[in-house]
Amino acid sequence: MKNRLLQYFWVALGCLICGASINLFLVPHHLLSGGVSGLAIISYFLFGFPIGLQILIMNIPLIYAAYKFLGRDYTITTIFGTIMFSAAVDATQFLTKFNLLDEPILAALTGGLVSGLGSGIIFRVNGSGGGLDIIAAIVKKYYSLNFGAVGFSINFIIMLLSAALFGLKLAVLTLIAMFVGANITDKVVEGFNRRKTIHIVSYKTQEIVEAILKEVGRGVTILQGEGAYTRQRKQVIFVVVSLTQIAKIKLLVQEADPSAFMIVSDAAEVMGRGFTLPGSKDL
Protein backbone atom coordinates (compact mmCIF):
# COMPACT_ATOMS: atom_id res chain seq x y z
CA MET A 1 0.00 0.00 0.00
CA LYS A 2 2.84 2.36 0.89
CA ASN A 3 4.59 1.65 -2.41
CA ARG A 4 1.39 2.30 -4.36
CA LEU A 5 0.85 5.64 -2.60
CA LEU A 6 4.46 6.59 -3.31
CA GLN A 7 3.96 5.66 -6.96
CA TYR A 8 0.85 7.86 -7.15
CA PHE A 9 2.77 10.76 -5.57
CA TRP A 10 5.53 10.61 -8.21
CA VAL A 11 3.02 10.20 -11.03
CA ALA A 12 1.11 13.25 -9.78
CA LEU A 13 4.34 15.27 -9.55
CA GLY A 14 5.40 14.21 -13.04
CA CYS A 15 1.99 15.17 -14.44
CA LEU A 16 2.17 18.57 -12.76
CA ILE A 17 5.60 19.23 -14.28
CA CYS A 18 4.39 18.18 -17.74
CA GLY A 19 1.28 20.32 -17.47
CA ALA A 20 3.25 23.36 -16.37
CA SER A 21 5.72 22.83 -19.22
CA ILE A 22 2.93 22.87 -21.81
CA ASN A 23 1.49 26.14 -20.52
CA LEU A 24 4.77 27.89 -19.74
CA PHE A 25 6.80 27.09 -22.85
CA LEU A 26 4.76 25.44 -25.61
CA VAL A 27 1.36 27.14 -25.79
CA PRO A 28 2.66 30.77 -25.68
CA HIS A 29 4.71 30.08 -28.84
CA HIS A 30 2.15 27.91 -30.65
CA LEU A 31 4.30 24.82 -30.16
CA LEU A 32 2.87 21.32 -29.81
CA SER A 33 3.71 18.19 -27.87
CA GLY A 34 3.43 14.64 -29.10
CA GLY A 35 0.52 12.21 -29.04
CA VAL A 36 -2.90 13.02 -27.59
CA SER A 37 -1.79 16.25 -25.93
CA GLY A 38 -0.49 17.48 -29.31
CA LEU A 39 -3.91 16.95 -30.89
CA ALA A 40 -5.56 18.67 -27.92
CA ILE A 41 -3.27 21.69 -28.30
CA ILE A 42 -4.12 21.96 -32.01
CA SER A 43 -7.82 21.97 -31.14
CA TYR A 44 -7.16 24.60 -28.48
CA PHE A 45 -5.46 26.89 -30.98
CA LEU A 46 -8.27 26.44 -33.50
CA PHE A 47 -11.37 26.44 -31.29
CA GLY A 48 -10.27 27.43 -27.78
CA PHE A 49 -11.37 24.17 -26.12
CA PRO A 50 -9.61 23.45 -22.77
CA ILE A 51 -6.55 21.29 -23.41
CA GLY A 52 -6.83 19.17 -20.27
CA LEU A 53 -10.49 18.35 -20.81
CA GLN A 54 -9.79 17.31 -24.38
CA ILE A 55 -6.94 15.06 -23.25
CA LEU A 56 -9.29 13.36 -20.80
CA ILE A 57 -11.99 12.81 -23.43
CA MET A 58 -9.55 11.54 -26.06
CA ASN A 59 -8.14 9.05 -23.58
CA ILE A 60 -11.49 7.37 -22.84
CA PRO A 61 -11.32 4.87 -25.75
CA LEU A 62 -7.64 4.26 -25.00
CA ILE A 63 -8.41 3.52 -21.34
CA TYR A 64 -11.07 1.05 -22.48
CA ALA A 65 -8.44 -0.63 -24.67
CA ALA A 66 -6.08 -0.73 -21.69
CA TYR A 67 -8.71 -2.50 -19.58
CA LYS A 68 -9.48 -4.98 -22.35
CA PHE A 69 -5.91 -5.85 -23.30
CA LEU A 70 -3.72 -4.98 -20.31
CA GLY A 71 -5.76 -5.77 -17.23
CA ARG A 72 -7.26 -4.07 -14.21
CA ASP A 73 -4.12 -2.96 -12.33
CA TYR A 74 -2.57 -1.23 -15.32
CA THR A 75 -5.90 0.45 -16.12
CA ILE A 76 -6.30 1.83 -12.59
CA THR A 77 -2.81 3.34 -12.70
CA THR A 78 -3.50 4.77 -16.17
CA ILE A 79 -6.82 6.31 -15.12
CA PHE A 80 -5.10 8.04 -12.20
CA GLY A 81 -2.29 9.33 -14.40
CA THR A 82 -4.67 10.50 -17.12
CA ILE A 83 -6.89 12.39 -14.68
CA MET A 84 -3.91 13.98 -12.96
CA PHE A 85 -2.30 15.03 -16.24
CA SER A 86 -5.56 16.47 -17.60
CA ALA A 87 -6.21 18.34 -14.36
CA ALA A 88 -2.61 19.61 -14.22
CA VAL A 89 -2.78 21.03 -17.74
CA ASP A 90 -5.97 23.00 -17.09
CA ALA A 91 -4.97 24.00 -13.54
CA THR A 92 -1.72 25.55 -14.78
CA GLN A 93 -3.29 27.34 -17.76
CA PHE A 94 -2.75 30.69 -16.02
CA LEU A 95 1.00 30.20 -16.63
CA THR A 96 0.53 31.02 -20.32
CA LYS A 97 0.32 34.70 -19.37
CA PHE A 98 3.91 34.82 -18.12
CA ASN A 99 5.69 33.97 -21.40
CA LEU A 100 9.05 33.53 -19.68
CA LEU A 101 11.07 33.12 -22.89
CA ASP A 102 10.75 35.45 -25.86
CA GLU A 103 12.73 33.26 -28.27
CA PRO A 104 10.71 30.30 -29.67
CA ILE A 105 13.84 28.16 -30.02
CA LEU A 106 14.65 28.61 -26.32
CA ALA A 107 11.03 27.85 -25.45
CA ALA A 108 11.18 24.64 -27.51
CA LEU A 109 14.41 23.50 -25.85
CA THR A 110 13.27 24.38 -22.34
CA GLY A 111 9.79 22.97 -22.88
CA GLY A 112 11.24 19.70 -24.13
CA LEU A 113 13.64 19.52 -21.18
CA VAL A 114 10.98 20.19 -18.53
CA SER A 115 8.33 17.91 -20.08
CA GLY A 116 10.97 15.19 -20.50
CA LEU A 117 11.78 15.48 -16.82
CA GLY A 118 8.11 15.09 -15.89
CA SER A 119 7.59 12.13 -18.21
CA GLY A 120 10.76 10.50 -16.93
CA ILE A 121 9.52 10.73 -13.35
CA ILE A 122 6.24 9.06 -14.38
CA PHE A 123 7.90 6.25 -16.32
CA ARG A 124 10.59 5.67 -13.68
CA VAL A 125 7.92 4.54 -11.18
CA ASN A 126 6.17 2.46 -13.86
CA GLY A 127 3.33 4.95 -14.14
CA SER A 128 1.37 6.14 -17.14
CA GLY A 129 -0.14 9.41 -18.26
CA GLY A 130 -2.35 7.78 -20.87
CA GLY A 131 -2.22 8.55 -24.58
CA LEU A 132 0.60 6.92 -26.50
CA ASP A 133 1.74 5.14 -23.32
CA ILE A 134 -1.29 2.84 -23.63
CA ILE A 135 -0.65 2.14 -27.29
CA ALA A 136 3.00 1.41 -26.45
CA ALA A 137 2.04 -1.12 -23.79
CA ILE A 138 -0.43 -2.90 -26.10
CA VAL A 139 2.02 -3.00 -29.00
CA LYS A 140 4.74 -4.33 -26.72
CA LYS A 141 2.53 -7.07 -25.28
CA TYR A 142 0.71 -8.37 -28.35
CA TYR A 143 2.56 -7.40 -31.49
CA SER A 144 6.07 -7.61 -32.88
CA LEU A 145 5.89 -4.04 -34.12
CA ASN A 146 8.53 -1.56 -33.00
CA PHE A 147 6.66 1.08 -31.00
CA GLY A 148 9.31 3.64 -31.84
CA ALA A 149 8.16 3.45 -35.47
CA VAL A 150 4.47 3.57 -34.49
CA GLY A 151 4.98 6.55 -32.19
CA PHE A 152 7.06 8.35 -34.79
CA SER A 153 4.32 7.81 -37.40
CA ILE A 154 1.67 9.31 -35.12
CA ASN A 155 3.82 12.28 -34.18
CA PHE A 156 4.83 12.78 -37.81
CA ILE A 157 1.15 13.24 -38.70
CA ILE A 158 0.89 15.81 -35.90
CA MET A 159 3.93 17.60 -37.34
CA LEU A 160 2.29 17.72 -40.77
CA LEU A 161 -0.85 19.24 -39.24
CA SER A 162 1.28 21.76 -37.36
CA ALA A 163 3.13 22.73 -40.53
CA ALA A 164 -0.12 23.10 -42.49
CA LEU A 165 -1.87 25.14 -39.80
CA PHE A 166 0.90 27.20 -38.23
CA GLY A 167 3.85 27.08 -40.65
CA LEU A 168 6.97 24.98 -41.12
CA LYS A 169 9.04 26.95 -38.60
CA LEU A 170 6.76 26.09 -35.68
CA ALA A 171 6.55 22.47 -36.82
CA VAL A 172 10.36 22.19 -36.76
CA LEU A 173 10.52 23.82 -33.34
CA THR A 174 7.93 21.36 -32.10
CA LEU A 175 10.05 18.52 -33.44
CA ILE A 176 13.04 19.91 -31.52
CA ALA A 177 10.98 20.02 -28.32
CA MET A 178 9.91 16.39 -28.87
CA PHE A 179 13.49 15.27 -29.50
CA VAL A 180 14.82 16.98 -26.37
CA GLY A 181 11.91 15.66 -24.30
CA ALA A 182 12.42 12.07 -25.45
CA ASN A 183 16.13 12.17 -24.61
CA ILE A 184 15.61 13.71 -21.18
CA THR A 185 12.91 11.12 -20.44
CA ASP A 186 15.37 8.34 -21.25
CA LYS A 187 18.00 9.92 -19.02
CA VAL A 188 15.63 10.18 -16.08
CA VAL A 189 14.32 6.64 -16.52
CA GLU A 190 17.80 5.13 -16.88
CA GLY A 191 19.39 7.38 -14.31
CA PHE A 192 22.07 10.00 -14.78
CA ASN A 193 24.66 7.91 -12.96
CA ARG A 194 25.55 5.79 -15.98
CA ARG A 195 28.14 3.08 -15.41
CA LYS A 196 30.68 1.25 -17.54
CA THR A 197 31.12 -2.50 -17.80
CA ILE A 198 34.62 -3.85 -18.35
CA HIS A 199 35.65 -7.31 -19.60
CA ILE A 200 39.32 -8.21 -19.20
CA VAL A 201 40.96 -11.30 -20.67
CA SER A 202 44.37 -12.04 -19.21
CA TYR A 203 46.66 -14.84 -18.08
CA LYS A 204 47.40 -12.82 -14.94
CA THR A 205 43.89 -12.79 -13.58
CA GLN A 206 44.79 -12.93 -9.91
CA GLU A 207 47.12 -9.92 -10.03
CA ILE A 208 44.52 -7.80 -11.82
CA VAL A 209 41.70 -8.85 -9.48
CA GLU A 210 43.74 -8.05 -6.39
CA ALA A 211 44.71 -4.65 -7.81
CA ILE A 212 41.09 -3.73 -8.60
CA LEU A 213 39.85 -4.85 -5.18
CA LYS A 214 42.61 -2.97 -3.35
CA GLU A 215 43.06 0.18 -5.45
CA VAL A 216 39.56 0.78 -6.85
CA GLY A 217 37.37 -0.91 -4.25
CA ARG A 218 34.98 -2.45 -6.73
CA GLY A 219 33.70 -6.01 -6.68
CA VAL A 220 34.85 -8.34 -9.44
CA THR A 221 33.31 -11.41 -11.06
CA ILE A 222 35.50 -14.04 -12.73
CA LEU A 223 33.94 -15.77 -15.75
CA GLN A 224 35.23 -18.97 -17.30
CA GLY A 225 36.05 -18.75 -21.03
CA GLU A 226 37.79 -20.61 -23.80
CA GLY A 227 39.76 -19.38 -26.80
CA ALA A 228 37.94 -20.34 -29.99
CA TYR A 229 41.14 -20.91 -31.97
CA THR A 230 43.49 -22.38 -29.35
CA ARG A 231 40.77 -24.08 -27.27
CA GLN A 232 42.74 -22.95 -24.25
CA ARG A 233 40.83 -22.27 -21.04
CA LYS A 234 40.88 -18.64 -19.91
CA GLN A 235 39.44 -16.53 -17.15
CA VAL A 236 37.53 -13.33 -17.97
CA ILE A 237 37.31 -10.55 -15.40
CA PHE A 238 33.99 -8.72 -15.34
CA VAL A 239 33.61 -5.47 -13.38
CA VAL A 240 31.15 -2.56 -13.32
CA VAL A 241 32.60 0.86 -12.51
CA SER A 242 31.80 4.54 -12.63
CA LEU A 243 33.11 6.75 -15.40
CA THR A 244 35.81 8.24 -13.16
CA GLN A 245 37.23 4.79 -12.30
CA ILE A 246 37.98 3.68 -15.86
CA ALA A 247 41.36 5.42 -16.16
CA LYS A 248 42.51 3.87 -12.89
CA ILE A 249 41.57 0.36 -14.00
CA LYS A 250 43.27 0.82 -17.37
CA LEU A 251 46.48 1.78 -15.58
CA LEU A 252 46.26 -1.18 -13.18
CA VAL A 253 45.65 -3.64 -16.02
CA GLN A 254 48.53 -2.18 -18.05
CA GLU A 255 50.89 -2.54 -15.10
CA ALA A 256 49.83 -6.11 -14.30
CA ASP A 257 49.64 -7.44 -17.88
CA PRO A 258 50.49 -5.18 -20.86
CA SER A 259 49.16 -7.83 -23.27
CA ALA A 260 45.73 -8.10 -21.59
CA PHE A 261 42.63 -7.73 -23.78
CA MET A 262 40.06 -5.28 -22.37
CA ILE A 263 36.62 -4.17 -23.55
CA VAL A 264 34.85 -1.12 -22.05
CA SER A 265 31.14 -0.64 -22.81
CA ASP A 266 28.17 1.39 -21.54
CA ALA A 267 25.73 0.10 -18.95
CA ALA A 268 22.35 1.85 -19.21
CA GLU A 269 21.41 1.07 -15.60
CA VAL A 270 22.99 -0.87 -12.76
CA MET A 271 21.02 -2.12 -9.77
CA GLY A 272 22.17 -4.11 -6.78
CA ARG A 273 24.69 -4.12 -3.97
CA GLY A 274 27.37 -1.49 -4.23
CA PHE A 275 25.32 0.65 -6.62
CA THR A 276 21.65 1.07 -5.65
CA LEU A 277 21.59 -1.06 -2.49
CA PRO A 278 23.63 -0.62 0.68
CA GLY A 279 26.05 -3.33 1.66
CA SER A 280 28.81 -5.31 0.04
CA LYS A 281 30.61 -4.06 -3.06
CA ASP A 282 30.74 -7.55 -4.51
CA LEU A 283 29.20 -7.70 -7.96
Results as ranks from 00 to 15, higher is better:
106 L>Y: 15
83 I>G: 06
38 G>K: 05
140 K>L: 06
161 L>W: 05
33 S>A: 15
177 A>L: 03
183 N>I: 02
42 I>D: 05
269 E>V: 06
14 G>Y: 02
246 I>P: 02
235 Q>S: 14
120 G>F: 01
261 F>I: 07
228 A>Q: 10
15 C>L: 01
108 A>C: 08
261 F>S: 04
37 S>W: 00
133 D>M: 04
57 I>Y: 10
15 C>E: 01
195 R>N: 14
126 N>R: 15
179 F>E: 00
264 V>P: 10
257 D>Q: 03
117 L>S: 04
7 Q>P: 10
145 L>D: 03
113 L>Y: 14
237 I>F: 01
62 L>A: 05
224 Q>V: 11
154 I>L: 15
275 F>R: 10
14 G>V: 05
35 G>K: 00
44 Y>Q: 05
189 V>S: 03
15 C>D: 00
100 L>W: 15
39 L>E: 00
230 T>L: 13
172 V>N: 07
275 F>V: 12
114 V>W: 01
78 T>V: 04
41 I>W: 01
39 L>C: 12
54 Q>K: 02
141 K>Y: 11
271 M>D: 07
42 I>Q: 09
134 I>Y: 05
276 T>S: 15
182 A>H: 05
17 I>Q: 01
281 K>F: 01
185 T>P: 03
95 L>T: 12
5 L>C: 08
234 K>C: 02
217 G>S: 14
219 G>H: 08
214 K>F: 13
93 Q>V: 08
61 P>C: 05
129 G>P: 05
278 P>I: 02
48 G>R: 10
46 L>V: 12
106 L>W: 09
110 T>R: 00
4 R>N: 09
152 F>A: 13
9 F>M: 14
40 A>L: 06
142 Y>V: 08
21 S>D: 09
56 L>Q: 03
82 T>Y: 04
168 L>M: 12
155 N>F: 00
29 H>L: 10
165 L>G: 13
279 G>E: 08
177 A>T: 02
69 F>S: 04
156 F>W: 11
183 N>H: 13
202 S>Y: 03
249 I>D: 05
228 A>Y: 06
98 F>G: 09
244 T>R: 15
64 Y>Q: 07
163 A>V: 04
12 A>I: 01
149 A>M: 11
183 N>Y: 10
254 Q>N: 07
36 V>R: 00
232 Q>N: 15
159 M>C: 12
123 F>P: 00
53 L>C: 02
261 F>T: 06
58 M>Y: 15
78 T>A: 14
127 G>V: 11
258 P>R: 13
146 N>A: 13
71 G>A: 10
229 Y>R: 07
260 A>V: 06
43 S>D: 08
121 I>Y: 01
9 F>Q: 11
71 G>K: 03
134 I>Q: 06
212 I>K: 06
160 L>F: 13
67 Y>S: 14
126 N>E: 13
232 Q>P: 04
18 C>L: 11
163 A>E: 05
234 K>I: 10
199 H>E: 08
162 S>D: 13
243 L>F: 12
261 F>Q: 03
7 Q>Y: 07
97 K>H: 14
73 D>Y: 09
111 G>I: 03
158 I>A: 06
75 T>P: 07
198 I>Y: 00
262 M>V: 15
144 S>G: 11
42 I>M: 15
131 G>D: 05
190 E>Y: 10
261 F>A: 08
96 T>C: 09
235 Q>K: 13
144 S>H: 08
280 S>A: 12
27 V>F: 02
191 G>S: 01
116 G>K: 00
57 I>N: 07
254 Q>K: 14
20 A>V: 01
